[in-house]
Design a protein around this nucleic acid. Structure first.
Lengths: 221, 221
DNA sequence: TTATTTTTTTAGCTTTGTCTAAATTTATTT
DNA sequence: AAATAAATTTAGACAAAGCTAAAAAAATAA
């Protein structure tokens, strides 16, 4: 496994994020994700193709090959271990953690990451509920869906919030729902698509359809 | 305090290291320190002068001004806190620590460093005995000298080794002297300039002049 | 099927940080 | 004080990673 520049790593990570099981990633999609112009994407795709990290035919989109995928998983591993460290040990709140981890993830010393992993007790998931790949790149599958699609009586972890407005944050704070909160859906009402959820031993909470569609959760082994 | 590139930070750090209380740093000196060509140094000095971090007149050498000094201290702070973390928490050995800290030191999030400092218990010195600047850039003075110059009965900490040959490392290992070892000189012999030192409650050790000249220690408040 | 729109790529420019080779300034000798 | 040597700076080139504007290809509409 060679070393890649911060910029290359950011492209690889973004493609990993965008590429679903089947589809190709397009130039414009990636440009939007990475906040760059399409021309810059084309340049980098040529470079990553030359480094044999992805399949790319002009005008046909691209996707990571096996090697690119492995590299992506190591970047994700670094990111999520640092996130865990920042929250668990340095007591950062979960909304602050991502930004700092974006920087730390590019320090690519393998021994550092493996020792950090050990120090943290080999965590399998970060507190968003996102799985952390192990030193060999093995990763548990877990699905991220919106709360309105969560099956009844399935414990899930709040991973992110769609709308980031202060209004929704106020409401979430009031209901004591934050990133990392474990919850399960106890009832669904067809009339208004509202749901009732349970958090630990707290009283039942009612969530409107609108709110449920803006809360994304992780669940599964 | 603005943000600087990794490259700028490496130059600032190196100038800080080279500039003694009085003197100017020269182009060639810095080129040797940083492993770059003199022409590259000149380029960067123009840039850092434009950013008002140092005094520089062509052909006359340069030195950090008050602002540059402050920036340097923050870089040193980050470096030494990461070193402390790597040794203390991740159980890196002291010879591995420097290289990794060279990378981590450029992650310049202020809150990260202040929280790391707190997490580590606000250490005042790294295990080389080098002082760690606090969040305001305050730093304890401590002198680094070679063991043969250390006054009698003064506790000091082994900070570095001059010669890095396997022969000296073998000898140091045999005598159980490592970076971070606390010791004091108990006797000096004029005949061959050999010295006798004491480490904690261990028996007295004899050190030859040749060896003493290759062991550098930190001492003082 | 042709025309139009959208997407993607190409061509060429910019900045950062490096380099080499040549020119210039300062220091050292004779 | 000239001549020579050493140190430093300038000039010009290059690679990385971004950009804009124009060209080309693909997709969509008429």
């Amino acid at each position: 496994m060679l070393n890649y520049t911060t910029s290359e790593e950011n492209y690889i990570k973004a493609i990993y994020r965008l590429q679903s099981a089947d589809g190709m990633v397009t130039t414009n999609e990636l440009a939007a994700e990475i906040q760059a112009k399409p021309a810059s994407i084309t340049d980098m795709m040529k470079k990553l193709k030359a480094k044999k990290l992805l399949n790319y035919q002009p005008y046909q989109g691209f996707r990571l090959n096996a090697e690119g995928f492995k590299v992506a998983l190591m970047i994700v591993r670094r990111h999520r271990l640092w996130e865990f460290f920042l929250a668990e040990k340095l007591k950062f709140t979960w909304d602050e953690v991502h930004e700092v981890a974006e920087e730390l993830e590019h320090v690519s010393n393998k021994k550092l990451i493996d020792k950090l992993d050990e120090y943290l007790g080999f965590p399998r998931k970060d507190p968003h509920g996102d799985p952390i790949p192990d030193a060999n790149g093995k990763i548990e599958i877990s699905k991220k869906i919106c709360l309105s699609e969560l099956p009844l009586n399935t414990i899930a972890v709040v991973a992110s919030v769609g709308d980031q407005s202060s209004e929704i944050l106020e409401l979430l704070e009031h209901k004591k729902i934050a990133i990392g909160t474990k919850l399960e859906v106890k009832k669904k009402f067809e009339f208004d698509n509202s749901i009732e959820i349970k958090i630990n031993r707290h009283p039942i909470l009612t969530i409107s359809e609108q709110l449920a569609k803006n809360i994304f959760v992780n669940y599964g082994e």
